[in-house]
Design a protein around this nucleic acid. Sequence first.
DNA 1: CGTGTTTGACCCGCGC
DNA 2: GCGCGGGTCAAACACG
Length: 317
Amino acid sequence: MSDHEFRDFYYHVEAADVFRVSAADQYRSSYMSFTDCLHGSTDEYGSLENAFGLSPSSSKGFTDEYGSLENAFGLSPSSSKVFSPKKKERVGVHSGEVMAIAPNSSISSSSSEAEGNCEEDSVNNKNKQPKGGGKESSKKGSKAAKKKEERKQEEQRFVFMTKSEVDHLEDGYRWRKYGQKAVKNSQYPRSYYRCTTQKCTVKKRVERSYQDPSTVITTYEGRHNHPPPTSMRGNAAALLQPSMFSPPQLAWTTSFPHELFMQKAPHHMNDPAGATASMFAENPFQQHYQQHHQQHQVSVVRLRPSSRHGSFHVPKA
DNA sequence: CGTGTTTGACCCGCGC
DNA sequence: GCGCGGGTCAAACACG
C-alpha cells in the first residue's frame, strides 16, 4: 500500500533573502525574504494571495481567476518555475520537494490594490456567527472590526506544495478534520482541518493537485499560539534523520518547513538586516540556512517523513 | 469513553 | 432573486 511506503523526502525550501540577493538569482523578486517568512508577518504584510495578486479571501478567488489553486500558482506537472506578471508570485514544483510560499514584504506593503482586495474580500465565514445567530448591534463598527479581524487572519497564510503520496502530511501538530468538499474541476476533494489545541485557531486546507496528483497543496491559515504537542514532537523527532546541514538535535525544527515558517519570531524587529541576523542567531536552523544561503540561494533539507500517529489520517484503501 | 472522521445540511458571497 | 461554489457545522459514526 502506497500510503505506507515512505521514501526519503527532500524538503526544498527556497527563499531568497531580499537583503542579499545575487544577480544570478532570477527568482529573487518572486520569493519572499526568508526572514519575512519566519516572521510570520502580520500587519505590514499582505496575505499570500495578495502576494500572488489573488483574491485573499476564499479559494473562490482562485477558481474564478485561474480555474484552480494550482493554476493560480502556475503549477503544471512539468513546470519548474513560473514567473508571474506584475505582482503575482508563483511557484513551481520540483520532484520530491516542498516549496514554501509566504508573503513578500516588498509586495504587499506597498500594494494598495492588494490591500483593497484584502479589505473587500473576506475569507471568513470562519468568524461568522453560528448558524441562525449573528446579529450585530452596530453595523459599521462591527463591520470594521470584522474586516480587521479577517484581514489579520488572512495575512497569516502559508501555502506548501509537497510531492507526497499522502494527503495529510505530518507537521508536528494535531489536527481535526472538520470538512471536506469536492473541488470544482478536480477529481480530488479538499479537506479542512483545525488545530485541536484549545484556543488555537489555526486551520489548514489540504488538497491534491489535479494536474499533478503527486503534489499535495497545503494551505495554513493563522499561527499556532503553542508549541507542537510534546509527544508529537518527540515522536517525530525520533523518527527523523538528521538534516544534511543541521545538527541532529535540530531535526525536529528542520523537519517541518510548515512548522518552521509558522514559528513566531522571538522578538519584534524593525531593522531588516538586524532582524535577519538576529533571527538566524536565534534559530539554529536559520543559522544553518544563512551559512548555506551565502553560497546557494537554495537550501535542501533532507528528512524522512514521520510515521503517522495522533490525528494523522490514513486514507482508506 | 474520548478522540477523530464522515457527510449532508447550512450559511454566505458572488456573478448573472 | 437565483444558482453556484466555497467554507463550516454538527450529528452520526468509527476506532482504540
